[in-house]
């Protein structure tokens, strides 16, 4: 495989470059949050509550006079952590279940598909509630419980794709050459499902961040004064007529990250596909 050609394609792919730039800024902001932010995320100053965005406070302040800009900067760490954790679990579980069920078929497929459907039927909120009630509220627990029910979509897509690929002549040829099942899955089927996996992942990352937001809103996930974007957004809802900026800025940050990740994924899919 010509690595040079891949780089060349990446350099020419506008979507990929834009997406990467957006995503990298989020990453850099997260890494250097304490250098960039002018204030600590939980630094309160009641006298300066509800200051609109301006020169002193770039994004304004909230009801406790906390600097919203600093809070959003720090919040990027949480957003990335949530997103990457959910996506990592989702892909590893979803892709392996999909490949195994699709490739081997028969009884294994029946069992795995049953588990997949069962998991699909599980409402994430209820699962999170159960986990949090037993173990106490924490962002990590909410993230893991969200991830544990988010893989069935991925598993189903990979399964059906696997089923269609495994009967193609090039897979038959591989079997006739004496490739093992593992080798066929890894070398022939997985690379050909990569496209949908990447797209699915990039579409789900913003969803993952948002769904944990909802749980944080219910008091199950991040606890105040955490600068979780979802938490800031939901707290801001109470003051939306008086100080709309409290909800607007975390929303914009979320959109920025989501768009960046989506563009990067779409671009990546095109770059990795030799047919384009």
């Amino acid at each position: 495989m010509s690595r040079k050609r891949t780089y060349l394609k990446a350099a020419k792919n506008g979507m990929f470059i834009t997406g990467t730039v957006l995503f990298l800024t989020v990453l850099l902001v997260a890494v250097f949050a304490d250098r960039i932010a002018p204030h600590k995320y939980d630094e309160m100053n009641i006298e300066k509550a509800f200051i609109p965005p301006g020169r002193a406070y770039l994004f304004g302040t909230d009801e406790f006079g906390r600097c919203l800009f600093s809070r959003i900067i720090y919040g990027s760490r949480i957003a990335l952590k949530i997103g990457l954790m959910v996506v990592a679990i989702q892909i590893s579980v979803g892709v392996s279940v999909g490949l195994l069920a699709g490739y081997f078929g028969g009884k294994l497929d029946m069992i795995l598909s049953f588990i997949t459907d069962l998991t699909w039927a599980m409402p994430p909120v209820v699962l999170s509630l159960a986990i949090v009630t037993v173990l106490g509220p924490s962002l990590e627990r909410v993230v893991v419980s969200t991830a544990l029910v988010s893989w069935p979509g991925c598993a189903r897509m990979v399964r059906s794709k696997t089923q269609s690929i495994k009967n193609m002549p090039f897979v038959e040829a591989a079997r006739a050459l004496g490739e093992s099942d593992l080798s066929i899955i890894v070398r022939y089927i997985l690379p050909n499902t990569l496209g949908i996996v990447i797209v699915l992942t990039t579409l789900q990352l913003p969803g993952a961040i948002l769904s944990t937001t909802g749980l944080s809103f219910l008091g199950l996930g991040s606890q105040p004064p955490s600068p979780d974007w979802g938490l800031i957004l939901s707290e801001g809802v109470n003051y939306v007529s008086k100080a709309p900026w409290i909800s607007i800025f975390p929303g914009l940050a979320l959109i920025y990250t989501a768009v960046g990740f989506n563009l990067m994924g779409e671009g990546l899919r095109d770059i990795l596909d030799p047919r384009t």
Binding site: M1, M168, P169, F170, E172, A173, A174, A176, L177, G178, R187, Y188, P191, N192, P274, R275
Partner: peptide, 19 residues
């Protein structure tokens, strides 16, 4: 199997599109 070769009908899908 190494002592046999096989050629299929549809040339377009006989080769792994990824390599």
């Amino acid at each position: 199997r190494r002592r046999m070769g096989i050629v299929f009908q549809d040339p377009a899908s006989s080769l792994n599109p990824r390599v």
